[in-house]
Amino acid sequence: MYKEPDPQGTQYWNQCLMQLGQTGDRQLYQQFYHHFAPRLNSWLLSQTRDPILAEELVQDTMMAVWRKAAQYDAAKAAASTWLFRIARNLYIDQMRRAQVRERGKAKLVEDDTHFDDQPADASRVRQAMRDLPVQQAQVVYKSYFEGKSHQEIANEMEIPLGSVKSSLRLAFQKLCKALRP
């Protein structure tokens, strides 16, 4: 029996991006954009704390989606993972632009990983985040959303560095379990 794809489901967006890559359909792009751009904006605003820069990075990320969708492969990554990687790389580039000198051309790439095509979805992760003890949720939040290093988190929360690391470790393991029950 045919089932309508769940518009909130990860699988739905993976297919949407694959299809976008094959067809270059502007309607499909708009749909993808309306779902992800405002979420990217949330994430990038918490990272940069600069609403203008955040929106610029959202645009850059979404342009990359338009130009590179043909190279997206749902067997290798979820659409949201792919998008997260692009946005994170652009954000890091932006932060480092002033610091890194144009020397050497070494590029380190790593992309031989695979993606288990299991129905993982964001609502389960949201629930798993809610179920985390406060300290674990905080260290995850500060790592993913505020770009803080372990030491910065330890200073801010006034807890030992070792606790930051063990909290991150435990949270990571629990969240992974939520992804793959």
């Binding site: 990860t10 967006w13 502007r26 792009y29 708009q30 954009y33 309306h34 992800f36 751009a37 405002p38 979420r39 990217l40 904006n41 949330s42 994430w43 605003l45 609403p51 929106e55 959202v58 645009q59 979404m62 342009m63 990554a77 979820a78 659409a79 949201s80 993972t81 792919w82 998008l83 997260f84 990687r85 946005a87 994170r88 990983t113 695979h114 993606f115 993982a120 979805d121 964001a122 609502s123 992760v125 949201r126 985040m129 993913y144 959303f145 990571f172 969240l175 992974c176 992804l179």
Partner: peptide, 29 residues
């Protein structure tokens, strides 16, 4: 890759924050 998958899921779980810039509408973009 697992941690990036998690990053993507957290991204999806975020509250959407509409873009303020009008030029950022996908059709115009």
């Amino acid at each position: 890759a697992e941690a990036e998958l998690l990053g993507g899921m957290l991204l999806e779980a975020l509250e959407p924050l509409p873009l303020r810039d009008e030029a950022s509408q996908p059709a115009l973009l």
